[in-house]
């Protein structure tokens, strides 16, 4: 049946208000639960980059473990610790929004670093976790790269993404792919130059160097994004890495 234009306009307006209202209500009601999930997910990823946390079932266990074993700082591009933001409020590494931060000029960015402390002696840092951010094929990707206390050998990685294709680019989050970074890969060359780690093109490639990992078949652009992210951010963290190695008396070749 043909309806008048007025009817159509009124109908659309009522629909819009109803649907918009329902959506905002849902969003507001679910926001706290979602924020909690995101926080848990972040902490899981930081811990997951250095240890196997699959044995933990309850969220509280992970949050407690995080509290006990992780110390975080924020540094600038020179590797100097920044304690407060522009307004004088204390900076919390976990609250630094990687996506917003990424858009700022690299000289101005905040660089959070998570130090995993020894279980028995909390003065000993077992590993350093460096968060990073970049672009995949469809949308952003992010990562946590953990280095051993020598600040050269990769201890583990954890990646996240917004919209990479499941089964292709999204495989960067799979354990199998992440484990490829654990095979004694190093970010510095023997001569002491920062080489980063490169995911090669193609899958099932053998004879890789200590700066290369096996690639993702069908997800070359995602892999390139990962490589670019690692190279860029390891470069940004380089000052901190070299300073800390100097302090800890690790030879800089």
């Amino acid at each position: 049946m043909q309806r008048s234009n007025i009817y159509i306009l009124v109908f659309s307006a009522v629909m819009t208000v109803l649907i918009g209202g329902a959506m905002s209500l849902t969003s507001v009601l679910l926001k706290p639960a979602q924020d909690k999930q995101v926080e848990l997910d972040t902490k899981k990823k930081i811990l997951g980059a250095v240890m196997d946390i699959s044995t933990f079932d309850k969220p509280e266990e992970i949050l407690n473990l995080y509290k006990a074993r992780v110390k975080s700082v924020v540094v600038d591009i020179e590797g100097e610790i920044i304690a407060t933001d522009d307004k004088g409020n204390p900076l919390i590494a976990e609250k630094v929004n990687a996506q917003k931060n990424h858009k700022i000029d690299r000289e101005e960015r905040l660089y959070p670093i998570y130090m995993i402390l020894n279980e028995l002696d909390p003065n000993v840092v077992e590993a350093y976790v460096f968060p990073m951010f970049g672009l995949g094929l469809w949308d952003w990707i992010s990562g946590y790269v953990a280095l051993e206390s020598d600040l050269n050998t990769v201890k583990g990685v954890a990646f996240d993404h917004k919209g990479e294709t499941p089964g292709l680019g999204a495989r960067i989050t799979e354990e199998k792919v992440r484990n490829r970074y654990k095979e004694n890969k190093k970010i510095f060359s023997d001569a002491g130059n920062l080489e980063s780690i490169t995911m090669v093109k193609g899958e099932g490639i053998t004879g890789l160097s200590m700066h290369e990992v096996d690639g993702l078949s069908g997800a070359t652009i995602t892999a390139k994004g990962v490589n670019k992210m690692l190279k860029e951010y390891l470069g940004c963290y380089q000052s901190f890495i070299l300073n800390t190695r100097g302090l800890n008396g690790i030879a800089i070749n």
Binding site: Q2, I8, S12, M15, I19, M23, S27, L30, Q34
Partner: peptide, 29 residues
């Protein structure tokens, strides 16, 4: 109204899908 029925259908489907997506995000991240 027959003339905007596809848009109305789409709006209803989109709302329901957003609901599912939001609930998954909150309870099964």
């Amino acid at each position: 109204p027959g003339r905007i029925r596809i848009i109305v259908q789409l709006a209803v489907v989109a709302t329901l899908v957003t609901l599912v997506s939001e609930f998954l995000k909150a309870y099964s991240y």
